[in-house]
Amino acid sequence: MRYFWAAFFMFWPIVAIVIFTISPAMNWWFPGAGDPDSLTKGQSMTPLGVDIDNLFYLILIITSVVFVLTHIALGYVLFRGARDEGKKALFSHGSHALEVMWTIVPTGILIFISLYQLDVWRKFRVMSSFPEAAVEAPVAEVTARQFEWRIRYPAPGKKLQLKPQPDDLYTVNDLHVPTNRPVMIQLRSEDVQHSFFAPQLRVKQDALPGQVIPVWFEVTQAGHYQLTCAELCGWGHYKMKARIVAEPQTQFGKYLHDLRNEQNDDGVQDKKSGDADDE
């Protein structure tokens, strides 16, 4: 029975490791591109997201090694204790050398992880290191409210202003962005706190009432991505479902044009502006 208990505590770490190993194949893993069968499944569609994934895998390797080693040690002492039951236990109050070792080694590892990741964080959040192209012309203002995402684009050829302009374009729960260039959005909240979470893009930023927070990302592959809310915002929190459509620059331009036409179309006048071409 003593050996049974020692084995009992070794059984579950093995199950845990097996589950982790099969998880990507079982699709219990990072969400990837829209196409569920694509080879890049589980891979982020933004360069910064790839950095985050790499950091995750690095930490996963380190922690897995620690997990395995500590559990082997635990298993060893348990089996030994099971075998030696009845013998008088070792009379030892500790070991200075061991203690020093297992203080210094983890310190080194933790300092390494700390320093290693600073750069990704800086790129993601520190305004002065945002890509210039993104900062110059934010593509849209995204305003969260209970329970939807409101999007405001500047009119084609114009720049996004802090205050709404008469020719601004509006959509709800549908954010279009151009691919293959850094884009920045201005994130706001109209009521309570929300959080802009695009899982496939590995982007998350809380929207704070009373504050405008810039968020940037670069989508490298055209497609439809999820946009959800990650901060409890009321009973309908789970319903804040929206999409991010990433498309090549030309298509994005066309999208804005169409949006403007649609918005300016009062249904009475003929479409006499130059864009009305498909008659």
Partner: peptide, 26 residues
């Protein structure tokens, strides 16, 4: 936060050290 993981680690190692060589009552 990284640094606070350190004392947690030390404690864990010490618990395993405590079991080591023990005459365990399961």
């Amino acid at each position: 936060t990284m640094m606070i993981a350190l004392p947690s680690a030390i404690k864990t190692f010490n618990w395993i050290g405590t079991i080591w060589g023990g005459n365990i009552r399961f």
